[in-house]
Design a protein around this nucleic acid. Structure first.
Lengths: 261, 261
DNA sequence: CCATTTATAGTCAGTACGACTATAAAAAGG
DNA sequence: CCTTTTTATAGTCGTACTGACTATAAATGG
């Protein structure tokens, strides 16, 4: 290692002969299924951690940014044809030496948020996508797993998943991110269930309505007085996500005397 | 590129013959000097961007995490003997292909916060540290630069600096981070100047005091009724940073009708 | 001594929020 | 059919927090 002088045509550069690092992306793909927070996991087919579950991810290709690679992996792992509208957000980068026993891997972690997946994503058994098992591929099958029973995961993915959860929970307080978990049209009850599932706390329904409706641009009523009948009870009005991106003042989760993170 | 099977003693692994990436850290080192936000910059001695200013940074060593490398760089660039107590925070990772014309570089960016630097950091002229100019080193001299006149910077460092500013400004709202800009004992006026410098807005002094003092654990009065006379006016009581890390409710910056980030 | 500067104390009204009650409209079960 | 259950929606009340503002105290520089 160290600096070496190289000549590239007519220009002379100093180039660092660096220790080679592998750069990967890891994805915490979150969604709500039946009112509970779920995460997309893949089963590892190879050592290390063979047979254990892990977050989906993969190597950066030479011409890709981490964001591009993450969206490609998201499409591959979920099998969705169009992931361009999904919320994808860089979390942080994990670079501890030894986090992958095979080699030095620096991983850029992302959180992705999905509406309740369409019905062809039936409960777990069929793989969500067809991750071409190249020689030594790591993904055997993919499955939606309830957040609370996701651990333990391979590598340092427990930590990544916890960081993703904390980040999303915190962003629900200050941003309009919750609609990313909802289909294009949704009821206020569905929106409230997003908060309750991520935060793990019950919210007062009238107060939640008042707050959401008082925040300009958070949601917009669907004009056609449309109503949706999910089950019992009075039909609810439908709303769409509005243009606002931040909540001001924020919608703080209840009874957090302690400190987060 | 692709997967190759390698035998390592008695174990057989599949290893990814990846495109080699260089991994670096970049630091946005922020402080307050004379009530204005300043950032630590280094002048580039080599192409590309020779003669331009850039954020300090450097390559990850084989045994280092990004956090370790960032703290090492912080010590090297500031010349401070003990940087263990300083606030250092991972921002995000920049991985666009072509962000460094020499080669593929993935950079993990950090924000570091310093109290007003000690007097041996006199205005700019002498280098803050002695960055051993190895063959092809990039740092020629270091200097504190007012945030508003820092640009344009080399590479994508304008973007990194802007992201650091936005992140710190946002964290002032929700956390007790502001004390990281202050010396161990400080007045409420100094603390208020942190907010005003980062946010670029004036704050009402009585209201700021009320808010800070009403937040348990944000600051603690120094018991010895100690007072500090910085200049004119009535002497102010001294405070220390308290154990709290978050502000609840937050201290929102005024008049932000728009959306951040 | 006086003007200026900074620190500190306090008032007052509007807003937001937590807790709560009440009513409406559907389905489910006898 | 009628009652119970479930969900949606409307509204009330008191407290906490905040923005705008006034007033007083204690230092410095002429």
């Amino acid at each position: 290692m160290g600096w070496v002088r190289v000549s590239d045509g007519d220009q002379v550069y100093d180039k660092y002969a660096y220790e080679p690092f592998a750069v990967t992306v890891d994805l915490a793909v979150l969604t709500l299924r039946a009112g509970a927070l779920h995460v997309l996991l893949v089963e590892r087919g190879q050592e290390p951690y063979a047979g254990q579950w892990a977050l989906p991810g993969g190597f950066l290709r030479p011409d890709e940014s981490a964001e591009t690679a993450a969206r490609r992996e998201l499409a591959e792992e979920t099998g969705l044809s169009d992931v361009s509208g999904l919320h994808l957000e860089q979390l942080r980068t994990y670079s501890e030496p030894g986090r992958d026993p095979r080699m030095r891997v620096v991983s850029v972690a992302f959180a992705a948020l999905l509406p309740d997946p369409p019905p062809d994503f039936v409960h777990g058994d069929p793989p969500l996508a067809s991750p071409e098992p190249q020689g030594g591929s790591d993904a055997a099958q993919a499955r939606w797993t309830p957040y609370d029973s996701a651990r333990p995961l391979a590598f340092d993915h427990d930590r990544i998943l916890a960081d993703a959860h904390e980040r999303v929970g915190s962003e629900l307080e200050y941003t309009c991110l919750a609609t990313a978990f909802c289909p294009p049209e949704f009821t206020l009850g569905e929106l409230q269930r997003v908060y309750e599932a991520v935060w793990g706390t019950a919210l007062d329904r009238p107060n939640f309505r008042r707050k959401v409706l008082a925040t300009p641009g958070f949601v917009e009523a669907v004009p056609g007085a449309a109503r949706l009948t999910g089950g019992r009870g009075k039909p609810a009005a439908l709303y769409r996500a509005g243009p606002a991106t931040t909540l001001q003042p924020p919608l703080l989760r209840p009874s957090r005397e302690g400190r987060p993170t």
